[in-house]
Amino acid sequence: MNTILTSARHEVLCTLRARVAMLLLVLFLGMVSLSSLIGWLTNTTVTRVYEKILADGLTTAPNPFAAVSALYYSRNSVIYVVLIGALMAIILGVQATLRDRQSGTSDLVLSRPVDTIHRLIGQFLGLGAVIAAVLAASTVISWASISIIMGAPLGFDTSVRLIAFATLSWSLMMIFALLGMLTGLYSRKETTALLVPFVIWSAIAFVLPQIGTAARPVALLNPVPALVAPGSASFDLIGAVTGPFTITEQFKRAASIVLRDDSVTGSPWLSILLLVAVLIAMTWIVVVTPRHTLRSGLNE
């Protein structure tokens, strides 16, 4: 327990002192803040145009933003998590496990009475705390900015949904953080430690969804899951096979339902279960890393 807490605390400290990590955290928070601003600007612009054409007698239809849910303003955050959040998590994960191998501090750590499983769990929890803190800050920013846009504090249900979205985001980001930790442990070079998880991330976020859904590439940058081509048995089959691996699409699906996006229907539970299963599997793979791997040198 002592090693877990010590390693977790140390990880938080090292992450907060790393400039690149801090830059990414600030960037992520900035993008989430912008998400609400973009939503508000869209609302304001469309409403102005609507009021003008209403005054000119060109329409009798209701204002399209009149019935918009407060959570609408958070929807862009879904894609920020998949794009910036996941990449940030990979970098934090790689740094966590590569740090000791790069600097040579692994021998000092491993000469102490340290169980490697406890050490890695501690690092995982430290990263988890940093990412949770960032998501908590982004949730507070979203809550406050949406409350300002709506002209009143958000209700209980909406607030809970924002927290649920942050929890989902944490799960996805931790999966990528663990991927980074894994390549940081096993790569022989610093460059491949970063390159390999980036390639895997791009395959998961962009390549696999296209294989399974025939989605237009641009659709993958939307916060809603890629649409399956209707009536196509082959895509249904490929989609069923690749579905569990396209965790970013699973996240987008669950997040869209949590954020009450009408274009996605059904239950989010299967997607949530898949995310949790992948998170548990990745955690297990990382913590059973053999002791000698933690002190293996880099060929650079």
Binding site: L5, T6, C14, A18, R99, G104, T105
Partner: peptide
């Protein structure tokens, strides 16, 4: 011998002492 260069002397020693 190498340490965590971004951390202070006290932070480095606290880490190894706790380990």
């Amino acid at each position: 011998v190498q340490f965590y260069d971004n951390l202070t002397l006290l932070e480095n020693l606290r880490f190894f002492a706790r380990l």
